[in-house]
Simulated assay, not measured.
Amino acid sequence: MYKIKVNENHTFDITKETMEKLDVVETSANKFHILQDHTSIKAEILNADFNQKMYAIKVNNNIYHVDIYDALDQQIEALGFEIGASKQVNDIKAPMPGLILEINVKEGQDVKENDPLLILEAMKMENVINSPRDGVIKSIQVKQGETVDKNSLLIEFEA
């Protein structure tokens, strides 16, 4: 059983059997055609961080941020421990190319986990980039109105 969290708002469970029953065809690298309930769906994996189990997926031109929790992650969470790797993030990189609409922090500022750091517009959607952990902002590498490429360094935390 996998627990899936989409855009930090929606959580649902998926079994391995459900995944195996999906009618999915990979049309090219990281691009898929899905047929569900006689409806055609196009999906593309824009960004994949396998170690942190975090993905940016475009489905029919909408971008979703997806976190996947396997059985071990769920047991760790149930015990009240933090999930290790995700709390060690020291820099924030652009998950996709886009335009910096707003920067909500300053260098030297203390932030808490899930505080909004900046807003990145990509494909006419505003994506709020939240802090992955508590920390202090070491540097901000972008300016409001600047266009960034995928994986561009946006913000660094003090270690």
Rank of each mutant, 00 (worst) to 15 (best):
Met1Glu: 03
Met1Ser: 12
Tyr2Arg: 03
Lys3Asp: 01
Ile4Asp: 04
Lys5Val: 13
Val6Thr: 07
Asn7Trp: 12
Asn9Glu: 12
Asn9Lys: 15
Asn9Ser: 10
His10Ser: 12
His10Ile: 11
Thr11Ser: 01
Asp13Phe: 07
Asp13Ile: 10
Met19Ser: 01
Asp23Asn: 07
Val24Gly: 05
Thr27Met: 13
Thr27His: 05
Thr27Val: 06
Asn30Cys: 05
Lys31Leu: 06
Leu35Glu: 08
Gln36Asn: 05
Asp37Asn: 06
His38Met: 01
His38Gly: 00
Thr39Pro: 00
Ser40Lys: 08
Lys42Cys: 05
Glu44Asn: 05
Leu46Ser: 10
Leu46Ile: 12
Asn47Lys: 14
Asp49Gln: 13
Asn51Ile: 13
Met54His: 14
Met54Trp: 14
Tyr55Ile: 09
Tyr55Phe: 14
Val59Thr: 15
Val59His: 03
Asn61Gly: 03
Asn61Tyr: 13
Asn61Leu: 07
Ile63Phe: 04
Tyr64Asn: 10
Val66Pro: 03
Asp67Leu: 15
Asp70Phe: 08
Ala71Pro: 06
Leu72Ser: 00
Asp73Thr: 12
Gln74Val: 02
Gln75Leu: 04
Ile76Glu: 02
Ile76His: 06
Glu77Pro: 00
Ala85His: 05
Ser86Cys: 02
Lys87Cys: 09
Pro95Thr: 14
Ile100Trp: 11
Asn104Thr: 09
Asn104Cys: 03
Asn104Ala: 15
Val105Ala: 00
Lys106His: 13
Lys106Arg: 09
Glu107Leu: 11
Gly108Trp: 06
Asn114Ser: 02
Asn114Ile: 02
Asp115Thr: 08
Pro116Ala: 09
Ile119Ser: 01
Glu121Trp: 10
Glu121His: 05
Asn127Cys: 01
Asn127Arg: 09
Ile129Ala: 05
Ile129Trp: 03
Ile129Met: 00
Arg133Cys: 03
Asp134Asn: 04
Asp134Ser: 00
Gly135Arg: 03
Ser139Glu: 15
Ile140Met: 06
Ile140Asp: 08
Gln141Ser: 14
Val142Gly: 02
Gly145Val: 12
Thr147Ile: 06
Asp149Pro: 02
Lys150Arg: 03
Ser152Asn: 11
Ser152Glu: 13
Ser152Pro: 09
Glu156His: 06
Glu158Asp: 15
Glu158Ser: 06
Glu158Met: 15
Glu158Pro: 08
